[in-house]
Amino acid sequence: MTVFLVIGGIGLVLLLASLVFGDIFEAFDVGEGGFSGIAAGVGAVVFGASGVIAQSSGLPVVWAYAIGVGFAVVAFLVSQAVVKRLSETEDAPPPPLDGAFGMTTATTGPSGGEVRLEGVRDLEARLCWAEEEIAAGTRVVVVAVSGSRVQVRPV
């Protein structure tokens, strides 16, 4: 029973570390993204738990190992498929804003203003600034990005 508890405990630590700090194996490029620390942790936890339950039910040690391995493989494969599917649905990074065109919606100058950008998916309206004062309704182009703010100049 000690083997099941130790492997289950290691799996729990691996699972928690992967959830808190990000996938551990991804940082080491193990399996080129094909192997998830979360899935390995789930498999080890299920192996330990099912082995302990099987032994506590009075089954022979051989059956406890067989049940533990069987359930661990199934749990690993299912969780690996879920992790892979979730990672494939991640949003693409936003497009670069340098060179984007837009229209100022407020008077803009060194102290700030606002611009409505064209063709940008995440935010259409952004805080902006310019080296010179630009009237509202002027067509501008983004020349620099600083955090969520953009620097613009008239076209």
Rank of each mutant, 00 (worst) to 15 (best):
T108M: 00
L16D: 09
V143Y: 01
V78M: 09
L117N: 01
Q55H: 12
G112Q: 04
T104C: 04
A106D: 10
L14P: 03
T89R: 15
A44K: 02
T108W: 00
V145K: 02
V42S: 02
A130T: 03
A106E: 14
G112A: 09
E133C: 01
A72G: 09
G48A: 01
S50W: 12
G109A: 03
V143A: 05
A125S: 14
P96C: 05
A40V: 15
S111P: 00
P60D: 10
G137I: 04
G37M: 05
P93W: 07
P95G: 14
V6F: 10
T2S: 11
V42K: 04
D23F: 01
P60W: 01
G43V: 07
S57C: 10
P110H: 07
P93V: 08
V115G: 01
Q80T: 07
A72Q: 05
W63Q: 11
A125E: 13
V140H: 02
G8N: 04
V140Q: 01
E26H: 07
G11N: 01
F25M: 02
Q55W: 12
R85D: 12
R121D: 15
F76G: 03
A135Q: 13
S57Q: 13
G68A: 07
R149I: 01
V83N: 09
V155H: 10
G43L: 09
C128L: 02
G51K: 04
G41N: 07
L5G: 12
T2Q: 12
A75K: 08
S87P: 00
G147C: 11
A39W: 00
P60T: 09
T89E: 15
V142N: 07
A44T: 03
V74F: 05
F35D: 03
A106W: 01
A17I: 11
A44Y: 09
T108V: 03
V152I: 14
L14M: 08
V142W: 00
C128F: 01
T107P: 08
S57N: 13
V61G: 03
G99S: 05
M103G: 00
G34W: 09
D122P: 03
V61Y: 06
V3D: 11
P60S: 14
L77D: 10
S87Y: 10
F28D: 00
A144Y: 07
A144N: 12
E90I: 05
R85M: 11
A64I: 04
S87M: 14
V152E: 00
Y65T: 04
V152W: 00
I24H: 06
A40F: 10
A49S: 13
A27G: 08
E132S: 11
L16V: 15
E88P: 01
I7E: 05
I10G: 05
P93M: 12
A125Q: 12
I7M: 05
S87A: 13
G9L: 06
V142H: 00
V155L: 13
E118M: 10
A66W: 04
E131R: 08
L14W: 03
V61C: 00
L19E: 15
L5W: 15
G8A: 05
P110Q: 11
G31W: 13
E118I: 08
V45C: 15
G37H: 07
A54Y: 03
L19T: 09
S36T: 08
P93L: 15
G9H: 05
Q55Y: 12
L123H: 14
V152L: 00
G33Y: 12
S79C: 10
V141R: 11
I53F: 14
Q80M: 12
V62Y: 09
F71C: 13
G112F: 04
V74Y: 10
Y65M: 07
F21W: 13
